[in-house]
Design a binder for these strands. Structure first.
Length: 921
RNA sequence: GGGCGCAUAGCUCAGUUGGUUAGAGCGCUACAUUCACAUUGUAGAAGUCGUAGGUUCGAGUCCUAUUGCGCCCACCA
């Protein structure tokens, strides 16, 4: 027996119930299967400290739709979940917690601190996992991976050793992005530039008096009144200056090249050098060179053999080189330096200047370009095959325009700084032999998979491991294969790799997508995935990126609590056109909620009227198309048209279009028309079967989008749930899926995607029904115009000029009568004009409403007259008002404009009413 | 400096390779309430598709120029 549904859908009860059922029945697990094709999604590992935001909700909804869809299409669909260890972020969180107890990580020491981090991970690390479950994500949780897992770490070590042995990893002194707060190096991608309103300071560097040599004599150096002015945004870096550079072509400075300047405040002697890279237009055309604190100056320093002088401690405070400024934070030092220069008359001017500086992606501190010993990967050789694969189309980006962005970055790829001076992360498999290093500082480096007990060269046992850990992305870039326990070659890896699709946000292309492709080729000699779907950024209705720090974030969990998961998912997906940014405000979710309610109530109506004994048959066996009446033929044709369309849209990653196709079909065709049309014939067997089948199949179509409500209703449907053979594109050739009649499955999740019965799509049927809809609309309009009581039935004559239309209409009469509330509907060949009737011409039809017996024509005319009179007097008032200069001159323009428009509207209305009145006579 | 995206109804946006009358959601107006659903139904008002040229029988769609907004990359002393 059909179970009755409650009047209102309650998402909260439904959702937690079904997720548990799915989990308990192991429906998320995907195993290699000999007769199925694999479809694997690699989840962008959310960071372990993360909490679900709208971006995640969108990203994971898309992935879940893909997985559920592919599963129904017969693929062995695997969604491999997990989290990454988010080195800096996690360390920050734990350090913050420690700070509350008044502790620093240094107080605990490395071992103890890491214990604390693991503790924290055990307690809070699964927050995001639980939130993904609330979203309904069909992840194979048994496979959940963590980048710091033992097996995963083995892959990280393996990769490091291999790259080192190929000489693609090297150690060197370079200028890197240094975060003084986190006290670690950052990759270029982790130090995104942001515009700053700052100042450009013009400093005077005086010339040295010839012959004076204070460094030798120990006396105070003397300088002349002459000087060169340099412009800088970071005056505090002057202590590291070892030259001033000018363009050799610059006439202003040509004569000074090679002369010596005295660096104010600390009185160092510096030379003026010439370099063509200096922009003559910018500032004064003379630039101070600080090789240890600026990447460009670093290049200059190397080229001109300058001294590299570091002037800061790792925490961003000045060191002893800065003499009396030593110990001051860099920004405090800037103020002090400026003040002192001003006193000395060496500050020429300050002008406002916008510039951009790197900001730490975790704490937003302005990063300092800092010279230090770091580890790097040579990227150019890795990039080669990764560029080729995308150019050849082995990997496709959706939308395509990201291909260009990717290629552009790859063509200009820079070496990747992979060392981080933090504790939480994979420690590098690098060991130093003290003994060897004493003899030669460049020797004594041992890179090994297992910690060596003694130095292979000198057999010394005094070995220390590198303190630095690896960039988190150094583990994430291995995700597509390391999650399958690579470097072991197991069956899962063989079956699921390369994976099918990666769904991610644009900001992650460089961080992660590009690097995964490179890792795929380097370590698996293969692409890691075939498709990369890049979705838009979620923004608020102002267009700002949603983020916690801006306080404009809509919490998906709140939305779920208020509207339900299905509503959240459906709304999100229907406003995400391919690759466009998503603008969100809360009322968006009402649409999704209303739609869920509509599905619920339509299903409720069907279940109330369903005779289960009738529906337990196979549609395609029981009925041929010709045996069905026009309404049932029509809805089947529309259903299969929709099925075909949605399939194509999903295959092309057009999720919003699929959602809107599903929405329009269900609401505006199935509910608005079909269910209304069949009400008088709902007991008929053919109608019973068709309405049931369409609903049952529709639930399967909507399931990837709205998994919970579709499951809840589907479970309450009686009878055979699936009886048509599936197309099963995911099955390997030669495998027959067979008929699956009445097979009891615990879940809609395991059902096939409905088989496309294209023989049931018939454009003729669709056109015929459309004619009925149009006629019904015309009659409804006529009623509205004449203000016929909505409850009363009227008589209508329709004359069709063509025989064909007439024949079409004959089958439709009862439906038209029903939905247009017509009493007697007569069909005639020719239209003969008569008195006392209201006629409308539509296409080749005359639709005529005789007025006697329907409404008192005279009364209608009176009513219309009254309306016209009222309008006319209002028009007079308006005209007088607009003629009044007091009004037109004093009132705001937009109000005058609005009044004018109102006047125009009213005149048009009068015209219309007069036309109707004439029709009535 | 280089690249990309967007501009369509009051608002937020769809519109696949050029093709009948340019769509949706929200909002607005009028009417409807023993009916599966007011989280509803019926109907209505509302658009010179940013601007200017061009290609074409035909342009929201293709080309050129231009304006405004947003994003990315590089540079930034």
């Amino acid at each position: 027996m059909a179970q009755e549904l409650s009047k209102q859908y309650n998402p909260q009860d439904t959702e937690s119930k079904w997720y548990k059922v799915w989990e308990q029945n192991n429906l998320f697990s995907a195993k290699p299967s000999p007769d199925k094709l694999p479809y694997c999604i690699v989840i962008p590992p959310p960071n372990v400290t993360g909490i679900l935001h709208m971006g995640h909700a969108l990203n994971n909804t898309i992935q879940d739709i893909l997985i559920r869809y592919k599963k129904m299409r017969g693929f062995a669909a695997l969604w491999m979940p997990g989290v990454d260890h988010a080195g800096i972020a996690t360390q920050n969180v734990v350090e913050k917690a420690l700070a509350k107890e008044g502790l620093k990580r240094q107080d605990l020491g490395r071992e103890k601190f890491l214990e604390k981090v693991w503790e924290w991970k055990q307690l809070y690390g699964s927050t995001i996992i639980n939130q993904l479950k609330k979203l309904g994500c069909a992840c194979d949780w048994e496979r959940a991976r963590f980048t710091m897992d033992q097996e995963y770490s083995l892959a990280v070590t393996e990769v490091f050793v291999r790259l080192y042995e190929k000489k693609l990893i090297y150690q060197g002194h370079y200028i890197i992005n240094w975060c003084p707060r986190c006290q670690t190096a950052l990759s270029d991608e982790e130090a995104a530039r942001a515009e700053l309103q700052g100042s450009l300071y013009y400093l005077k560097y005086p010339f040295k008096i010839l012959g004076d040599s204070p460094q030798k004599t120990g006396t105070v150096p003397k300088y002349t009144d002459e000087f060169i002015i340099v412009a800088t945004t970071r005056p505090e870096t002057m202590f590291g200056d070892t030259a001033v550079a000018v363009n050799p072509k610059d006439k202003r400075y040509k004569k000074y090249i090679g002369k010596t300047l005295i660096l104010p405040l600390i009185k160092r002697e510096i030379k003026i050098i010439a370099d063509s890279s200096v922009d003559m237009e910018f500032g004064t055309g003379a630039v101070k060179v600080t090789p240890a604190h600026d990447p460009n100056d670093y290049v200059l320093g190397k080229k001109h053999n300058l001294e590299f002088i570091k002037i800061m401690h790792p925490d961003g405070s000045m060191n002893e080189i800065a003499e009396k400024y030593s110990g001051l934070d860099r920004f405090k030092a800037r103020e002090a330096v400026l003040e002192d220069l001003k006193q000395l008359g060496l500050l020429e001017k300050i002008i406002a200047h916008t510039f951009s500086a790197g900001h730490c992606y975790r704490c937003q501190t302005i990063v300092e370009p800092y010279l230090s010993q770091q580890w790097f990967i040579k990227m150019k050789p890795l990039a080669k095959p990764a560029i080729k694969a995308v150019k050849k189309g082995e990997i496709k980006f959706y939308p395509d325009r990201w291909t260009k962005v990717y290629l552009n970055w790859m063509d200009n790829i820079q070496d990747w700084c992979i060392s981080r001076q933090i504790w939480w992360g994979h420690r590098m498999p690098v060991y130093y032999c003290k003994n060897c290093q004493e003899k030669n500082p460049k020797a004594g480096i041992i890179v090994s998979r297992i910690k060596p007990s003694k130095c292979p060269k000198c057999a010394s046992e005094s070995l220390t491991q590198e303190e630095d850990v690896l960039d988190t992305w150094f583990s994430s870039w291995l995700w597509p294969f390391a999650t399958f326990y690579w470097p072991k070659e197991n069956a899962d890896l063989k079956y699921f790799y390369p994976t099918a699709t990666l769904v991610t946000a644009p900001e992650i292309i460089f961080f992660w997508v590009a690097r995964m492709i490179m890792a795929g080729f380097e370590f698996k000699q293969q692409i890691p995935f075939k498709n990369v779907y890049i979705h838009g950024t979620v923004r608020d209705s102002q267009g700002k990126k949603m983020s916690k720090s801006l306080g404009n974030a809509l919490d998906p969990l709140e939305v779920i609590a208020e509207y339900g998961t299905d509503a959240l998912r459906f709304s999100l997906i229907s406003i995400t056109s391919q690759g466009q940014d998503v603008y969100l405000s809360k009322d968006r979710f009402e649409q999704g909620r209303n739609f869920a309610n509509k599905i619920w109530n339509a299903s409720r109506f069907i279940l109330i009227n369903l005779k289960p004994e009738d529906v337990n048959v196979d549609l395609c066996v029981f009925f041929k198309r010709e045996q069905l009446d026009i309404v049932n033929r029509w809805i089947l044709s529309r259903f299969y048209t929709t099925l075909e369309k949605v399939g194509k849209e999903l295959d092309n990653f057009k999720f919003n279009e699929a959602a809107s196709s599903l929405y329009a079909f269900f609401w505006h065709e199935f509910c608005d028309w079909y269910l209304e049309l069949i009400k008088p014939q709902i007991g008929e067997k053919q109608t019973q079967i068709v309405m049931y089948k369409v609903l049952e199949k529709y639930l399967r179509l909507i399931h990837p989008f709205m998994p919970f409500i579709s499951e809840e209703i589907w479970q309450r449907l009686p009878g055979a749930k699936d009886s048509t053979p599936s197309t099963h594109p995911g099955l390997k050739p030669g495998v027959c899926s067979g008929l699956m009649v009445s097979k009891v499955e615990p879940s809609i999740m395991q059902q096939n995607w409905p088989h496309l019965q294209s023989e049931l799509i018939n454009k003729q049927d669709e056109l015929q029904m459309e004619l009925a809809f149009e006629v019904i609309n015309v009659i409804r309009n006529m009623r509205a115009e004449l203000e016929v009581n909505p409850a009363s039935r009227i008589d209508i004559q329709i004359s069709a000029m063509s025989k064909l239309t007439q024949k079409s209409l004959e089958q439709l009469l009862s439906y038209i009568k029903n939905l247009a509330k017509v009493n007697a509907l007569t069909l005639t060949e020719k239209y003969i004009a008569q008195n006392n009737q209201y006629a409308v011409v539509f296409k080749d039809l005359h639709i005529v409403m005789p007025l006697e017996g329907v409404a008192d024509a005279a009364q209608q005319i009176n009513k219309t007259n009254l309306k016209i009179d009222k309008l006319k007097s209002e028009i007079k008032n308006k005209e007088a008002m607009l003629a009044n200069k007091n009004f037109t001159l004093r009132a705001p323009e937009e109000i005058v404009e609005a009044e004018k428009n109102k006047l125009i509207d009213m005149r048009e209305q009068v015209k219309k009413l007069e036309a109707i009145k004439n029709g009535l006579r």
